[in-house]
Amino acid sequence: MKKSKKPNTRALKRRKKFLRGLRHFLLTPVLVCLLLFAVIFAISTPFLSDFYSIGSMFLQDSEPVYSHTYENIFTPSDNSGDTVNAEDVDYPSIDKQFGTLEIDNRGVDTKLFFGDGYVPLRNGAGVYAGSFIPGYGKTILVSGHNNTYFNGLKNVKKGDIVKIRTSYGNYKYRVTKTLIADADDKSTYDLSADKENLVMYTCYPFDELGLTEQRFFVYADKISGPQIVGIYE
């Protein structure tokens, strides 16, 4: 005769009680928490979506770097030919040294940076980032401090040769004129020019102490160096 197995009702009741307790202790608060997130998110999205998208514009992928060291992407080249392909040019980003600038017998021999902020001007001469690099066929606007790297500009005369060396080519420019003008005189440069021209400037007078309103400009036209081709598809 088979004995019928009766369910252990006490154990079952205890288990049910435990599960109910677990539900109230853990599950319900978690569900309510999720509901709170959903409600607060739904209410705040119309107000915060703009804030969030604007805020995310100020976030980088990594921690910001405050070092004053700069990257040097310049390696001497022997290309003084007529052209260089755009795809062979490592276009510099701001604060990178990408070449050297030298004016023979005038005391100007300096590193050349892209950008003219604090890092470039502390370490050499800087190409204004709103202008272009040698070979691009447009205006190259270069600045330097008059008591350091561009002090030699005071000796520059018409006809002097300016040599710029980059990783993609070596360039020569002939000085056509010098000019003393106010710093806010916009006629001293043309950033939309379609012909390659080099404009170097520094503070003037050279040995005067203090902040001067005038600048000493040196203009030069290209005489040799590879033109960057294939820029525009």
Binding site: D61, I94, L141, A183, D184, Y189, Y201
Partner: peptide, 26 residues
């Protein structure tokens, strides 16, 4: 203005011709 990895693409101050005097915004 930088890329998300920190490479600077715009670093612009008030004036194109750098001056630290009192020239107005040009």
């Amino acid at each position: 203005i930088t890329t998300k990895d920190g490479t600077v693409i715009v670093d612009e101050s008030n004036n194109i011709i750098k001056t630290t005097g009192f020239s107005p915004l040009t």
